[in-house]
Design a protein around this nucleic acid. Structure first.
Lengths: 131, 131
DNA sequence: CATAAGGATTCCAGCAACTGTAAGGTCAAC
DNA sequence: GTTGACCTTACAGTTGCTGGAATCCTTATG
């Protein structure tokens, strides 16, 4: 099938699919006219990529997961390790965002937010601590 | 002062400082030998940028904040609005990450993580729902 | 049969926010 | 005078696409 149909079926835009081929994540066949020709298996792989990307895995992680997906002799422990690493990474990001949010919320809370120039947010950004 | 000293004082690498000049966030003077020459005020601006970037503001938001910083007639309401927008954005990211984390944790929990190939994580990524 | 629309192809540029590298200029110390 | 630290510019690379231009192929219609 052509790339447009594969795009519909996988939920990925054609541009992205071509990009995935460029970085060697998938290798579709070519028809005689030069068009890419996707098999059902290719579409499975594309959907796999779509889902794993949407779960926050990087393209390189997706490459690993895809090779595990295609490896019938894989150990589920290997897959689990990737998932747990990602959870750790997400936890780090969550902690960082929460901390940022706390700081911003505290600053905003102390800013009267009117037409006067006096502003604790700016003061903090400028390094004028406390007060 | 030279860029190296300004880097030390602001906590930003020289490369980043040059980049900020390239995108017109700061405009240091030049010495006769062509070296950038930073004033104390320049360093204040750099520290301001360092702090606001580290709080998660985009470079363009930093540009806005910096102009507010340098505007003695600013309304604190304008600053507060930027901060509140950023908090909203952080909340969105937090929700997304929490959701991802939940999905991954659920998948990992059901994966026995041993030497066998059977893996609910892969099954889910492949679209085999339920089971 | 011509042609126009809709898809397909390639390649190149651009987004954010830097970072790395190369090739060279300047300055202070020995 | 030469070493080494520091400065300069310019260009490439990072991540993960996305948009655009020029061209080709296929299909439907007049």
């Amino acid at each position: 099938m052509n790339i447009g149909r594969a795009a519909e079926k996988s939920g990925l835009p054609p541009k992205t699919i071509r990009y995935y081929e460029e970085i060697a994540l998938i290798r579709p066949a070519r028809a005689e006219n030069g068009y890419r020709d996707y098999s059902e298996d290719d579409v499975h792989r594309l959907r796999f990529l779509q889902r794993s990307r949407s779960l926050g895995f990087s393209v390189e992680e997706c490459r690993t997961l895809l090779s595990l997906y295609q490896d019938d002799a894989r150990a589920s422990a290997d897959v689990k390790a990737v998932a747990l690493d990602k959870i750790t990474e997400i936890d780090r990001k969550l902690a960082e965002l929460k901390s940022l949010r706390g700081t911003l919320a505290r600053l905003a809370e102390h800013c009267h937010g009117d037409q006067r120039p006096d502003c604790p947010i700016i003061d903090d950004l400028a390094g004028k601590r406390g007060a």
